[in-house]
Computed example of a mutant assay.
Amino acid sequence: MDSLFTFLFEEGVGPIIILLNESSRLGRYAGSKVNPRSRYSLMPYAVISNGKLPIWVGSDRLQQWGPVIRLQKRNFGISKRVLEVVRAHYNNEPYLEKDYTKLETINIFGLEILSTTFTSAVNILLSDISSKSGRCKVVVTPNVDHIVKLDRDPILCRLYASADYIFPDGFPLVIASKLVGKGLCQRITGADLFPALCKGLASQRGHVFVLGGFPGEEDNICATLRAQFPGLRVTAMCPTFEFSPKGVEAENAIENISKAHPDIVFVCLGFPKQDLFGLIHRKRLQAGLVLGVGAALDFTFGRIKRAPIFLQSTGMEWLWRLCSDPVRLWRRYLVEDVSFIGIVMRELANTTR
């Protein structure tokens, strides 16, 4: 339990009341530990922890007693750990401290997708960079189009699933996860991670390497990003449109990345090229993270206008993009991605068995 106590003290948390529904068996048990007749009684956490930390467990009418953590799905941190201790005590079972450095994932579509908030995702990735682990880690952000293509190519799917961090880019993935009873927290797009990570690294004089864009615009990429994120060091390489993850240009990119030794490599080449580059060459890349961010550069330079926030939040960004570039995208959205419905139905059938 020492790691839990250390975490709480470092965060400056306490005293805490863990609120339980008083009508639940566990809630009644918590209240009865001090006074069986009082619904307002608290079970001191000292019953389990020998008084090392002032945490109390009680009914949900005790909000006036102090700082509160409600036991709801969105509170996956402290409250989840404390509740596990209470449950173990209630069931007269030994409590084994778990490794809470591991992130919560949802197994869906053959992938272990991280269920977290956007802010947490950014902090997780920046912390990973700061840890200087010495191993380049791959970040992928699957959307509906990716899931459809991965479903058709099991070999690619297995390689894709080996990424170190998998965040749900598409809003339909979040909705689908809730339909099958697994509930991803929220969408986390590569296009949003790109500026957020640049901003976070800029404050630390961090270094990013951009692989993508139109041939010959390296200087423009570097100047634009340095202007937008003062303090950020930028190196860029813009390959031809014939770039192959296993070709000569890929070897040149690996060599340039090794010379630059950046904190993050942003690959803007579209799926699956950008993801294959990172997944195939991760052991050779002298960088902290490699992340495929698709059209992020186009958004940055204004070549493609991002959908308004209300369309993004309602899952209608695909419609905005379709209307913006119907010639290129009509087949993807109206023909190919329709099979995503069947994939979700299959996932639902597997879940209910």
Rank of each mutant, 00 (worst) to 15 (best):
residue 213 G to S: 04
residue 180 V to A: 10
residue 170 G to N: 12
residue 249 E to V: 01
residue 240 T to D: 14
residue 164 D to C: 05
residue 177 S to W: 00
residue 232 L to N: 03
residue 260 A to N: 06
residue 164 D to F: 04
residue 135 R to T: 11
residue 249 E to A: 02
residue 243 F to Y: 12
residue 160 Y to N: 03
residue 232 L to R: 06
residue 230 P to Q: 12
residue 257 I to K: 03
residue 208 V to D: 01
residue 142 P to T: 11
residue 185 C to I: 06
residue 146 H to E: 11
residue 233 R to M: 13
residue 213 G to C: 01
residue 213 G to H: 02
residue 262 P to T: 07
residue 203 S to D: 13
residue 146 H to A: 10
residue 162 S to T: 11
residue 169 D to K: 03
residue 175 I to C: 08
residue 183 G to A: 14
residue 158 R to Q: 15
residue 148 V to K: 08
residue 228 Q to S: 14
residue 271 F to P: 01
residue 239 P to C: 03
residue 269 L to Q: 03
residue 232 L to I: 11
residue 230 P to D: 12
residue 222 C to Y: 07
residue 142 P to A: 09
residue 179 L to E: 06
residue 153 D to S: 14
residue 143 N to A: 11
residue 260 A to H: 04
residue 264 I to D: 00
residue 227 A to Q: 15
residue 151 D to T: 10
residue 134 G to D: 13
residue 151 D to S: 15
residue 169 D to S: 08
residue 159 L to E: 05
residue 196 A to D: 11
residue 236 A to D: 04
residue 246 K to L: 07
residue 220 N to V: 07
residue 158 R to I: 02
residue 168 P to K: 12
residue 234 V to I: 13
residue 192 D to G: 02
residue 203 S to G: 07
residue 217 E to H: 06
residue 183 G to P: 00
residue 266 F to V: 07
residue 218 E to N: 13
residue 218 E to W: 00
residue 277 F to E: 05
